Computed example of a mutant assay.
Amino acid sequence: MARYFSTFIPGLGEVVQAELKRKLPDLKVELLVDGLVVYETEASIEEVSALRFLNNSFYVFHFFKKVEPNSLVGMMKFVYNSDFLKKMSVPRVKSRDRSFRVITSYQNKLRAVELNVLKNAEEKIAKATRLTLDRSKPDLEFWFLERSEGIGFFALRLTYDRRSEKDLERGELRPELCNLLCILSEPQEDDVFLDPFSGTGAILRERMQIAYSKLFVGEKDKDKFECLKTRFHKNDVEVFQADATKLPLGDDSVNKIVTDPPWGQAEEVEAETLYKGMFAEFSRVLRRGGVLVLLTSQKDIVEEFLKESSDFSLDARYDVLVSGRKAGVFKIRRI
């Protein structure tokens, strides 16, 4: 079995582990900490790389299970001073793997090391792999990582952020988080799905990667609505312009809702007023037994509502950080 490590949205480790086990039946989890999982599987690199709910995944050559702080250089010297590289087998990641570079990371941030140490690592890796050094646009990246949890890795990067922060529109959620929100909704191929606060369509984009029957997409803002119509022009996707407290849908018309309401105030409407009207509509359109997954900064309002509600029950809650802001993910069931 090959060893991998992957990073994910902190706070959702339970969801990630369950989905990994579902996708990779032979999975053996070696370590799970907040935001990172180390595991073994016979699955191919292509299968691991295709897991959309993970931020980045790496093929692990060596797992340093216990390191002291500032051991990054020591890890590098261990790799290139021993016969480790001679025994190392580099898997094929791309159809053309001819060049490489070395990346060094300390506690989740890139960190430079002494030039002679870097050059030694580059020369030894080049000799062992017969790859050509290219520090600007390589085919492959070999990473030395020292983590804050007191562990380290020498690994090959398999994936890159599907969309970097600069590619995201203002307020747009990362695709990995959207994918996890959709997974929490227990997706089925006969789902009639709703996102009434669609914005840029980030959640919808990920839900379309999973089989469904019908998708309803709501957005109050006229400009965003027009963009959504252009982006998601499909027969089984219906885009409408409406307030989430007055949805143009029939009673019991959907069985899954995944959404990210405005954070704080929206167009001078108080959060409590917005959520009261929103939940009233969700109670009307969501079928009994249906699932609502809600990402929100208004955790107290949601909890108070659920305490008093006879229409909804809380299945699970997860505390997460979104762009540095505290938020909650609520999995709620219509009863």
Rank of each mutant, 00 (worst) to 15 (best):
E172H: 03
D251L: 14
V285K: 00
P175F: 07
Q241G: 04
A271R: 05
V329G: 02
Y80Q: 02
E226L: 15
F330G: 00
L168V: 08
Y318K: 06
L194Q: 06
K124T: 07
A327P: 03
F84I: 04
R96N: 10
E226W: 10
T273K: 12
S313A: 13
F330W: 03
F53M: 13
G328L: 07
A121E: 00
L180T: 10
M278L: 14
F153D: 01
N70L: 13
K222N: 11
E165M: 15
V93T: 06
S310A: 12
V117A: 08
L177S: 11
K109Q: 15
P25C: 06
T7P: 01
F312N: 02
K119I: 15
F58N: 00
G324L: 09
R170G: 09
E303L: 14
L215E: 12
K234C: 06
K166G: 02
W143F: 10
S82D: 01
L54N: 02
F61A: 04
E270F: 09
F153W: 05
S57Y: 00
G289A: 03
L295N: 11
E238L: 15
D236Q: 12
S164A: 12
E169Y: 13
V93I: 10
E186N: 08
R287C: 13
T273Y: 04
R325M: 08
R207C: 08
E308K: 15
N255F: 02
G218P: 02
D34S: 12
L158G: 00
C178I: 04
P196A: 05
L32R: 05
P10M: 09
R157T: 00
V117F: 09
K23I: 12
K307M: 05
S323T: 11
V117N: 10
R98P: 05
K224T: 05
V217S: 13
D260F: 12
F305Q: 01
K246A: 09
L110P: 14
F8T: 09
R325G: 08
P69H: 06
W263S: 01
L32I: 12
V291P: 05
P25H: 07
E172K: 11
M278D: 07
P261A: 06
F330Y: 12
E267I: 11
I45T: 06
V329I: 12
V329P: 01
S89G: 09
M208F: 07
K222F: 14
N235Y: 11
V16K: 02
K166A: 10
L20N: 01
L118N: 02
A316H: 05
M76K: 01
I335M: 13
D223G: 08
P196Q: 03
F53T: 08
S105K: 13
A266Q: 05
E122G: 06
E172V: 07
L85S: 04
S185T: 10
A50Y: 08
T159S: 07
G264C: 00
F312P: 03
V269K: 06
K224S: 11
I183F: 10
S253F: 07
K137R: 15
E68F: 11
E272T: 14
A316G: 06
S198N: 12
V291F: 06
F282P: 00
P196M: 03
Y39M: 02
G289W: 02
G150K: 04
F232Q: 00
I183V: 15
G11H: 03
R325Q: 14
G199H: 06
